[in-house]
């Protein structure tokens, strides 16, 4: 059986790195005694895979992880046992049975939505910057990859930027072929609107279905 879990990572837990989060999950599984499959080999580990790594310092309401189980477990029972075993700040929100034929969550991922709350800035300045960014045909940015500095067009990876009640909602590409971290967009806004501080929360993980963005877990659980 394949099970998909949606969990939040909030408060101080947003400073937990992806590697540390993976370790925290395997320990929570061992504590919970749930029948998650162990891999074969010399150093057995639980068969667990996360949909998408979250940048350090970004909170999330919607992280997803899938696990392979050695026997069927009721999703409510699973959710309850896992919730009790997870550390504070990491909260399991829902559990769904995944379709065996559906691709891995990681492979189905296409977009991520982030909600940004600002402080110490005039929101009109942000809106103006956002308009300008969306009006560009191309924005060249650089990132380090395998020790080399690589140029890429980050504008192509911004799906949408939208102001909602003084917050900014960003939809960015997050796919196996490449993802855009929210910091790149915030840096572009800063270039235009000056320095500010912001807290970023990931609010949706999305797959594509019939040309439309849809909830990732729902997409992979449909029979």
């Amino acid at each position: 059986m394949r099970i998909g879990i949606e969990f939040s990572k909030t408060g101080m837990a947003k400073y937990i790195s992806h590697l540390d989060l993976q370790r925290a999950f395997s320990r929570a599984i061992r504590r919970s005694n749930l029948p998650v499959k162990l891999s074969q080999g010399f150093n057995p580990h639980y068969v667990v895979s996360f949909a998408s790594a979250l940048a350090l310092g970004v909170a999330s309401e919607c992280e997803c992880v899938e696990m392979a189980l050695s026997e069927d477990v009721d999703t409510k029972v699973f959710l309850f046992a896992l919730s009790n075993a997870l550390p504070p700040g990491i909260e399991a929100k829902s559990a769904v049975r995944l379709n065996d034929k559906a691709p891995k969550l990681m492979a189905a991922m296409r977009e991520a939505e982030y909600t940004v709350a600002f402080s110490d800035v005039d929101i009109d300045m942000i809106n103006a910057a956002v308009c300008d960014i969306m009006g560009q045909a191309q924005i060249t940015a650089t990132k380090k990859s395998k020790g080399r500095i690589k140029e890429f067009d980050m504008r192509a990876m911004i799906v949408s930027l939208e102001s909602r009640n003084d917050a900014l909602v960003m939809r960015l590409v997050a796919a196996p072929a490449g993802s855009l971290k929210p910091d790149f967009v915030l840096d572009e806004i800063k270039k235009r609107a000056g320095e500010f501080s912001a807290s970023v929360t990931r609010t949706k993980l999305l797959a594509h279905s019939g040309g439309k963005a849809v909830d990732l877990l729902a997409a992979c659980s449909k029979i």
Binding site: M12, A13, Y15, I16, A24, R27, P87, G89
Partner: peptide, 15 residues
């Protein structure tokens, strides 16, 4: 915290 090495050194909140 975002600017220092391994911020989880300073957050507490472990299981």
């Amino acid at each position: 915290l975002p600017s220092v090495l391994k911020p989880a050194r300073y957050t507490g909140g472990e299981f």
